[in-house]
């Protein structure tokens, strides 16, 4: 039926002819896709670009230290690397690293296990959820290292105290992220899971946990970073009286003896291990899971 409004509108428009076309064959248009040049691909590679930055930093460091020429304050890059490699080979540094990692793994594993228990309670009951929310809000802002004096009173000098602060460092970050991840699981995904007849632990394990895997992984990553920083700090504080110290103790010892290159080598090791775990281990896990699933970009 004629629409008076449209008829009035169309009157103001200029008349234009209609036409139809057949799209051209792709073969005639030329290359729709073409490979990029080697240079473009090289600079498009993130590893290549960042590697260049690293080399730049090392060169700057070497140049500045040579110009300064006070190795007691600022050793050269090459000297630091030399000490680092020598101590690694002689076993001094590698032993310290192993000690640190052993304590770290104990604390981290205990933190993860405790986080799993607490999160389960929080998911299962509303009061559990409330308790955990309050606890997390209270303890999350508290730097783990601040608890070290208390830990020393309770557990004395030694591994026990460090494990205690490590648990504190990892637990809340993981709990916070996991609970947030569970809450963010889409409603229709939850309903699908229950529609299939999943209930209780099977529902949590097969729907909630994988759906929250991006958050859980983020929590594990943050927890690890906290634990690593806390561990080194704790070792620095009472490395003084501990016989079998870790990396922190290695740095502390080197400072006492004014071996600045060794201090740098210690810091080097801290950075290297941190990087290795964060950008190799966790990155690999992410690439094989949440990134592959399109749950994280």
């Amino acid at each position: 039926m004629p629409d008076p409004v449209r008829a009035a509108l169309a009157q103001d428009l200029p008349p234009r002819p209609e036409f139809e076309r057949v799209p051209q064959d792709v073969g005639q248009i030329g290359a729709v896709e073409a490979p990029l040049s080697l240079r473009e691909r090289l600079f498009g590679n993130i590893a290549v670009r960042r590697g260049l930055v690293l080399i730049g930093i090392a060169l700057l460091w070497e140049g500045y230290a040579r110009w300064l020429n006070v190795s007691l304050l600022f050793p050269t890059f090459s000297e630091t690397v030399r000490v680092f490699v020598a101590d690694l080979l002689s076993g001094v540094l590698s032993e310290r690293i192993l000690t640190s990692l052993r304590v770290l793994l104990i604390g981290y594993a205990a933190g993860v296990a405790l986080a799993a228990v607490l999160t389960t309670l929080a998911v299962a009951t509303r009061i559990g959820n409330d308790i955990l929310s309050v606890l997390t809000a209270m303890f999350n802002p508290l730097p783990a290292i601040a608890l070290l004096p208390l830990a020393l009173i309770w557990f004395g000098l030694g591994t026990g105290s460090i494990v205690f602060v490590l648990i504190h460092g990892t637990l809340w970050a993981i709990v916070l992220n996991t609970v947030t991840g569970f809450r963010a699981v889409p409603e229709t995904l939850r309903m699908s899971g229950r529609n299939f007849g999943l209930k209780g632990p099977r529902y949590v394990a097969q729907i909630l946990m994988p759906a929250a895997s991006a958050s859980i992984l983020a929590g594990l990553k943050i927890g690890w970073a906290f634990a690593w920083r806390t561990l080194i700090a704790a070792e620095l504080v009472f490395g003084v009286s501990s016989r079998s110290g870790g990396l922190g103790w290695y740095i502390f010892e080197a400072r006492e003896e004014l071996e600045t290159a060794r201090v740098f080598a210690g810091l080097f090791a801290v950075i290297l291990i941190g990087l290795l775990v964060e950008s190799v281990i966790f990155r690999t896990i992410e690439a094989r899971t949440v990134r592959r699933w399109g749950m994280q970009r």
Binding site: S192, P210, A211, W293
Partner: peptide, 12 residues
């Protein structure tokens, strides 16, 4: 059930 949104599929 089939829902409206695409989040009903398990992305993993």
């Amino acid at each position: 059930m089939v829902f409206q949104d695409f989040e009903q599929l398990m992305p993993w």
